[in-house]
């Protein structure tokens, strides 16, 4: 505890750095995987290829990806942007299948009825399909939040500062309190972001309350899958 009190500034600063790495990656992976998921839902033939390729991303070891990216992006190895890109790719791998499932879950009757009363294709996407895919998309987003916040720590190994720095530093200098602080702070950050996401979901989708139980069930299985991966 003493270690924590005397290093509160450092932990706070690393937490902000950690946020600056993970939040853009979470948002980017969500924004990119929604259209990919929609394509996989809309064009059946593309489903296997799209989802397969995205899932394959997850099979790339993270350290290898961090090192392989700079030659492609032209960024220096220790650029935080590099890490954001890598985290985004992993985020996409985690959420893209859920995103396709989310659009599959929109009832055919409702889609047809929207068309029949005069929604255009674009209007139907924004006004009907996307909001109705919302609860399942949200459950996928929650998994991405937790996995991205946790994965961002790996950047410390190649020298991109984050809460992971507390692990590497604590390990090298054999300060147990520092390692434990790093773990707890990472978990707290993930839980807070997850909670914010749930609250935002309730605000944006007040109609989906009766379905929260199913959304939670989906989310739990996804966490297990992500853990297994």
């Amino acid at each position: 505890m003493n270690w924590l009190w005397s290093n509160l500034d450092l932990v706070g600063e690393l937490m902000l750095t950690h946020l600056a790495l993970s939040v853009p990656a979470i948002i980017l992976s969500f924004v990119i995987s929604v259209p990919i998921g929609w394509l996989a839902h809309r064009y059946r033939w593309s489903r296997g290829v799209l989802l397969g390729l995205c899932a394959l991303l997850y099979a790339i070891p993270s350290l290898a990806l961090f090192i392989a990216l700079p030659p492609i992006t032209g960024l220096p190895l220790r650029s935080p942007l590099n890490l954001v890109i890598a985290l985004t790719l992993y985020g996409i791998a985690v959420i893209v299948r859920t995103s396709a499932d989310a659009f599959d879950a929109v009832e055919r009757d409702i889609r047809q009825s929207a068309t029949a009363v005069g929604y255009s294709a674009v209007g139907r996407f924004w006004g009907v399909e996307l909001p109705l895919a919302g609860p399942v998309l949200l459950s996928g987003l929650r998994v991405v939040i937790v996995s991205t916040v946790s994965l961002a720590t790996v950047g410390a190994v190649i020298g991109v500062p984050s809460l992971g720095t507390l692990f590497t530093n604590g390990f090298q200098r054999n300060i147990q309190a520092e390692i434990i602080t790093g773990i707890v702070a990472t978990m707290v950050l993930a839980l807070v972001l997850d909670w914010l996401c749930v609250m935002a979901g309730r605000l944006l989708m007040p109609w989906s309350r009766p379905n929260t139980a199913t959304a939670r069930a989906v989310s739990t299985t996804l966490v297990k899958q992500a853990d297994a991966a």
């Binding site: 009825s113 029949a116 009363v117 255009s120 109609w207």
Partner: peptide, 21 residues
């Protein structure tokens, strides 16, 4: 088609209402 559909009333089985509105 879109303009045509907007000029014709349509009622279907199971109401076809938008559950989020």
């Amino acid at each position: 088609p879109v303009a045509l559909r907007r000029s014709i009333g349509y009622v279907m089985q199971n109401s076809g209402l938008l559950p989020h509105r």
